[in-house]
């Protein structure tokens, strides 16, 4: 029997995903080893897990290096890869918004050339072009996006918002929402869906059953 390769986004997403794999009868003791390797096998040797940077997961899956991936909708929208997106797993729920300094929204609206700092240049550019019919200056930032408007690098940011606490602590508020239904998704390579159909369909079914049980739906 062939091995099913699963790519997981490192961090909290991988931790929660592993609970679902366990519920589907796939356990991976190596996962709990603090000196974690990048490639882990489950006990039966049927499933092999890769741990990668979130933005690399869709790439691994599109090219077929991994058959399945679990990754946030934000990353999928940014990468726009050609994949099957088979299941909304419901966890890691958040939204993506335009946020800027408190009380500056009206002034910002009137600015001719708006500067937008973001980790998601593709989503931001598309949002301003398609929803607002506007050309804006996109500034790609790799971390601590909130710094950008505070230091004057940009007028606003486009970023994911969970509780809003980070924004609040930095004197920023949401101006408008860009995407409201972000959560973890299971994605499948288009060829693997056919060639490893039985394993993948069973996994989807088991995940779905566990979702129902946990009432994520």
């Amino acid at each position: 029997m062939s091995v099913l390769n699963v790519a997981l986004a490192k961090g909290r997403l991988a931790d929660i995903s592993m609970d679902y794999f366990r519920a589907a009868g796939i356990s991976c003791p190596e996962f709990d080893d603090p000196k974690r390797k990048l490639i882990l096998s489950d006990e039966s040797g049927i499933v092999r897990f890769f741990l990668g940077k979130p933005s690399d997961i869709p790439t691994f899956v599109e090219y077929g290096a991994a058959d399945i991936g679990i990754v946030g909708k934000d990353t999928l929208l940014e990468e726009e890869r050609d994949l099957f997106e088979v299941l909304d797993l419901g966890f890691a729920r958040c939204k993506m918004s335009v946020a800027g300094p408190v009380g500056q929204k009206e002034r910002w609206e009137k600015k001719t050339r708006k500067k937008v700092a973001t980790k998601y240049p593709h989503i931001a550019e598309k949002y301003f072009r398609e929803q607002r019919r506007e050309r804006v200056e996109i500034i790609k930032i790799n971390g601590s996006v909130e710094l950008a408007p505070i230091t004057g690098l940009s007028d606003v940011i486009v970023d994911i918002v969970q509780s809003g606490a980070t924004l609040d602590a930095n004197g920023l508020v949401i101006y408008e929402d860009v995407v409201t239904d972000i959560s973890a998704r299971m994605v499948v390579n288009k060829v693997s869906m056919k060639t490893k159909n039985e394993m993948i369909v069973r996994l989807i079914r088991d995940f779905k059953a566990e979702l129902l049980k946990k009432n994520q739906l």
Partner: peptide, 14 residues
């Protein structure tokens, strides 16, 4: 078109 998109992505649950 929304349904078409969901089918194309094989988004069963959606």
């Amino acid at each position: 078109d929304r349904l078409r998109h969901l089918i194309d992505k094989k988004d069963f649950l959606g």
